[in-house]
Amino acid sequence: MKTQNQTYSICGSSSGPHFPELSNIEKQLLNNFQHDFPGTSTPYASIAQELGVTEQDVLDVLQKLKKMGTVSRIGAVFEPQRIGTSTLATMAVPAAQLQEVAHLVSSYVSVNHNYERTHHYNLWFVVTAPDDEQLESVLRDIEQESGFPVLSLPMLESYHIDLGFELGLDQKK
């Protein structure tokens, strides 16, 4: 694969020991194309032109970043409230049963995020469904299957415009 070999330490220090070593083109793809994905029919060629590399380079690097897990996907971030309905739900599960309940919750297709967190309410997950009725039915089902009550905390107001995530990766243009 033809990527630039030189790598840069991120934030100029060793404060992030877990940062993977990323090449310049990898950083540019991560930093600059989280929301400015070209609206052309050949977006990867457009990115390549902007970065001064070939389309194949861009495809290879994105494939590699996906394989490494650095990039989850190249695609759209949908607004759940506009294509259906969603909620942030939480449960307080005793440690001994957490693994089992977490597995149960993750097994639902309508659950797209599921995190263990440091709190009495230790399982936090996002449920998305086409309508309120189906959302409620999933929540009731999880309660019944797990035997633990679910707290549903739907978004009432969003105060942030999602422009992606500032990674603060050093880079050269």
Binding site: I10, T70, F78, R82
Partner: peptide, 26 residues
């Protein structure tokens, strides 16, 4: 493409691009 553009305009799509995995990035 037109449908995707329309969903961006209406807000059904927040953004399109590389979705980084924060955890994997450190």
């Amino acid at each position: 493409m037109e449908r995707i553009r329309a969903m961006q305009r209406s807000g059904a799509i927040r953004r399109i691009g590389a979705i980084p995995n924060h955890f994997a990035l450190g």
